[in-house]
Amino acid sequence: MSDQSGSLSKLAEAGEIPALARLLTVLERDGTNCFARFPELICPQHQAFRIGITGPPGAGKSTLIGQLIGRFRAHGLRVAVMAVDPSSPFSKGAVLGDRIRYSQHFNDPGVFIRSLGSRGSLGGLSSSAYLMVRAFDLAKFDVVLIETVGVGQTELEVMNVADLVAVVLVPESGDSIQGMKAGLLEIADLFVVNKADRPGADAFSHELEASLNLVQRGSQTKLVCTTATNGSGVDELFAFFDEALAKKEWRERRNSSQRLRAEAQALLRAQAEREIQSRMDAISSAEDFLAVFATNTRVIK
């Protein structure tokens, strides 16, 4: 098994996409146990720039990502897309969701698309996401686009994986967003007002900009207006990402103690949950129950 595993990671490292697909499946299934089998994941030589794209449902995130993939590919960059999708009722696998819409990129060997099942990961989504992006590093992708519906805390936590986070909103979000002082707004490095051809887009953009200046004095948070369906504003958005990618500051941030601790916390928590689950699975009688605790507690004897 170890030989097979080893060859899987080597093949993925060499750019064999089918091997990468299998490696990701193993990572999602086995969690941190995979570090023993794939030690090269712990410290990959190459690091991909991770861009998180989140926002409420219907904001046009998938269409925007479709447009961005095209821009990155035009610049010769290899792109991986990781998205959190609902889990299948038949299995714990992700349902792929809107990823199917990226059909124009299916046959491009420089694009890899992978969904992450929202209920399939023991120990939480974040840990699976952290492991998967490491596999994308290993496979030498230049950019990883991470998409989540920014509805709940879990999805927002996935954004910790990213080096830069864009929050996508629509002009009609204006009235609603005023009440949201935390969560979605806190994690943004960049706001995208998509569907900017709709009425009220300018007013909302100015309002958002003003409130950002008010709340985060001296903040560098940028705002870009786009209409993803016709590509309007996407060049400006791409330029922002391209510039950030070139600056390389993201490498320092990724290796900061804060980021490393957050990742370690997610992975260790997942590891602990797996351990608890495996111990629970072993219990089918009172003797089993005692056995679980007898190893830790002499009093039971």
């Binding site: 409420p56 009609e172 609603s176 967003i177 009440g179 969560g183």
Partner: peptide, 21 residues
């Protein structure tokens, strides 16, 4: 519903989910 109404309800859902995590 107007898009504004839908957004109001959507953000209420998001608010609850984030506050109760």
């Amino acid at each position: 519903p107007t898009i504004r109404d839908e957004q109001l309800l959507l953000f209420a859902c998001m608010h609850i989910r984030q506050q109760t995590a």
